[in-house]
Design a protein around this nucleic acid. Structure first.
Length: 452
RNA sequence: GGUGCGGUGGCGGAGAGGCUACGCAGCGGAUUGCAAAUCCGUGUACACCGGUUCAAAUCCGGUCCGCACCUCCA
């Protein structure tokens, strides 16, 4: 019994978390469509749910955390067309080249943010049969129909469709404003399976060669890995409708009304000047370039993302990352060589209150005020995925820049100059190092250095 | 139009009826050959207008502003 409270999108309320199995929590978070580099906005759910995963493991012991990889999607097909401009047909193998490349980049970038690899990372193309089985079941149960090579889910067959996003079937039927594809019976119907032309990748199915719709993979993979109901389902707020709504429709209608997830959690957006960071707006920065820009210190990006509570928007700024960096510098200086003990109750309490990371950070600062709390500070920070790097101040040294040995030599030289009261030379060495981002710290016990 | 989320000190950001977090920056001081780091001190802010209350940034009503989603768009 940990007292964890979670804001549930399903009820729009903060609720006490009660796992189905108190000794083993299940969580599924929507992962990337692997067709390009992930931007910082895409990284927010990763960091948020990684933090939640750390808390759940601490509080409940066992956690199975799944994050899917969407490796079949029209965007991937487009990317493959750009990759192979001469090819008239894009095959299943071609899109694999794209998806495997970006799945690998994604994993590396998220690791740079100190996000642990989820327990399982199911791929859509490895679960085609499961999806076909689920679609067939929905057709049998009268919730889906075949039309013009497509299989569509008929939204009006589900009475409580729209419960997650606060919509009603009536409103959706009435509010149709976009051109409705002529193979649809009703405007809100969505695709479960769509036909592939000869130049598109595809898989055989009872409805002809085709590929899955966007939402079906999550339903199928949750069923396969967890059964009918999981504890927590997470993702960005932009997934509430239609993606998660449709996942619920598919799974509930196939499972006789059983909940797909008992708790739905959605993180707010990363914004740039108040607007959502997105590919289409072009106002994005990739994690890849940002990690590079901040000398591999991804933890600073992570802390910047955790500086606001996860449901609030976070405005992206390099200044925010720099602030986070300073914060980490201070904590790292304090906990150098310290062994983590047990996390503090205050930090745990903050995190258990719907993952109140800003409050948790405040509590970390309180711990930092007292030397006797160093071990607790380190253990508590680990819950947030912070203070995990061994040589924080040396991490920024690049291979083509100055080496640690060279720095040490210059420090010795400067110590000699200082002894001889040649302060001009001493200062010159210090400013030369400063130009390379090396800050020297003199103390009674000698001089140490930090790479910024 | 519908639905949802917001507007807090120079900045970031919690809190949610009285005890006015925390961080960054700034300012003053200690320390230092000079710095850095560290330590001490220093800031009564909660969009606007009404109302309730002994007491409101927190509750109620209204207004203004911003953002997001509304079916293939992570």
């Amino acid at each position: 019994m940990s007292g964890l409270k979670i804001y549930n999108t399903l009820t729009n309320k903060k609720e006490e978390f009660k796992p189905i199995d108190p000794n083993h929590v299940t969580m599924y978070v929507c992962g990337p469509t692997v067709y390009d580099y992930a931007h910082v906005g895409n990284a927010r759910p990763v960091v948020v749910f990684d933090t939640l995963a750390r808390l759940l493991r601490h509080d409940y012991g066992a956690l199975t955390y799944a994050r899917n990889i969407t490796d079949i999607d029209d965007k991937i097909i487009e990317a493959a067309r750009r990759e192979f401009p001469g090819k008239s047909q894009i095959t299943n193998e071609d899109i694999k080249v794209i998806s495997e490349k970006f799945a690998k980049v994604y994993e590396e970038d998220m690791a740079a943010l100190n996000a642990k690899t989820p327990t399982i990372q199911p791929k859509a193309t490895k679960n085609i049969n499961e999806m076909i089985a689920l679609i067939s079941d929905l057709i049998e149960k009268g919730h889906a129909y075949v039309a013009d090579g497509h299989v569509l889910f008929q939204v009006s067959t589900m009475k409580d469709y729209g419960a997650l996003s606060g919509r009603t079937v009536e409103d959706l039927l009435a509010g149709a404003r976009v051109d409705v594809a002529d193979y649809k019976r009703e405007a809100p119907d969505f695709v479960l399976w769509k036909p592939s032309s000869d130049d598109q990748p595809g898989w055989p199915s009872p409805w002809g060669r085709g590929r899955p719709g966007w939402h079906i993979e999550c339903s199928a993979m949750i069923e396969k890995n967890f059964g009918q109901t999981i504890d927590i389902h997470g993702g960005g707020q932009d997934l509430i409708f239609p993606h998660h709504e449709n996942e619920i429709a598919q799974s509930k209608c196939s499972h006789g009304g059983a909940n797909l997830a008992n708790y739905w959690m959605h993180n707010g957006y990363l914004t740039v000047d108040g607007e959502k960071m997105s590919k289409s707006l072009g106002n994005y920065v990739t994690v890849h370039e940002l990690v590079d820009e901040f000398s591999g210190k991804g933890e600073a990006i992570r802390l910047a993302l955790l500086s606001a509570q996860y449901r609030q928007p976070v405005d992206f700024s390099r200044d925010g990352i720099k602030q986070a960096m300073k914060q980490l510098d201070r904590w790292y200086r304090l906990t150098d060589g310290v062994t983590a003990t047990e996390p503090s109750d205050a930090v745990l309490k903050a995190l258990r209150d719907d993952l109140n990371t800003p409050k948790a950070i405040m509590e970390l600062n309180q711990l930092a005020k007292n030397d006797s709390n160093k071990g607790i500070l380190k253990a508590s920070a680990t819950l947030l995925g912070l203070l995990g790097q061994d040589n924080w101040f040396e991490a920024g040294l690049s291979e083509d820049g100055i080496s640690a040995v060279q720095i040490e030599q210059l420090i010795v030289e400067r110590a000699k100059a200082k002894q001889e009261k040649d302060f001009a030379k001493a200062d010159q060495i210090r400013s030369e190092l400063a130009e390379q981002g090396i800050t020297l710290l003199d103390s009674p016990n000698g001089t140490t250095w930090e790479k910024k």
